[in-house]
Design a protein around this nucleic acid. Sequence first.
DNA 1: CGCCAGGACGATG
DNA 2: CATCGTCATGGC
Length: 296
Amino acid sequence: MRERHKSVRAWRVADYDLDATLNSGQVFGWQEADGGWEGVVRGRWVRLRETDAGLEATILGAVPDWHWLEEYLQMGFELEQALASFPRDEVLVRALTAHRGLRLLRQDPWECLACFILSSTKQIIQIRQMVALLSERYGDAVAVPRGHGQRHAFPGAKVLASVSERALRGCRLGFRAPYLLHAAQEVSGGELDLAGLKQWPLEAARARLMDLPGVGRKIADCVLLFALGFDRVFPMDVWILRGLRAHYFEGRAVSTKQIVAFVETHFGGWAGYAQQYLFHYLRMQGRGRARMDSKV
DNA sequence: CGCCAGGACGATG
DNA sequence: CATCGTCATGGC
């Protein structure tokens, strides 16, 4: 599929760090290309690039409105307000200084759930690979500009629900295959209305997600934060746990439960944002070095 | 070439 | 509750 007409839209926006945003482990389908990023949003090929004035998007075809992309990128979000609410503790300030402009996207709930089901015990690079393979095999091909290779959207729940576990294991999903299949069946069958969870109270929405096999607190929280708009949710993975223990508890052997309690009061209403800054900061710091510290 | 990865789960203390 | 083995696969 090829289309020749492109549409370009630019937003004046301060503090939008595209690299940090798309490379901070909240989303797995974007690829760096020619000084920008290319991916698929709502079945459309999208190219994003930072400019001096802000952010620029290129898509194919004539576009009546850009609302869907503005929503995805959270262009209307006032980052300053969230950042100003952060506690001024040392690590968080360092993370903020290092990555100011890191944003949370508003992802498609199904794609987000599926990707984080795949995320368990996988490095981010490997999650990207699984997502790419799954998309290639079962996702719809999207129109791309001339000269670009084929691109596929992330497969919908309906398609994946009709695939065998065996075929999914063929995509190198391992033990995650039956989990993904089950989620796809519940979502496509209407048994689980993911978008509807936005209206639920936090605890109930989290519990409903955790009803899914293969979905525990961490994965549920990722979906709540990255796709459903629960801004105070603070996903806790090994990196964050390690980091919190080191920086907020002087490395003492505090229980996970104590840390959870601490997080719920310490970071405030935009805790989810704080979490993403900390996660990205710790992960960037940890490349190569903290490997050894962490073993202590 | 082992170690471990944006975990979850069931079985034991 | 806290810990532990298991699950499947591959990047580093």
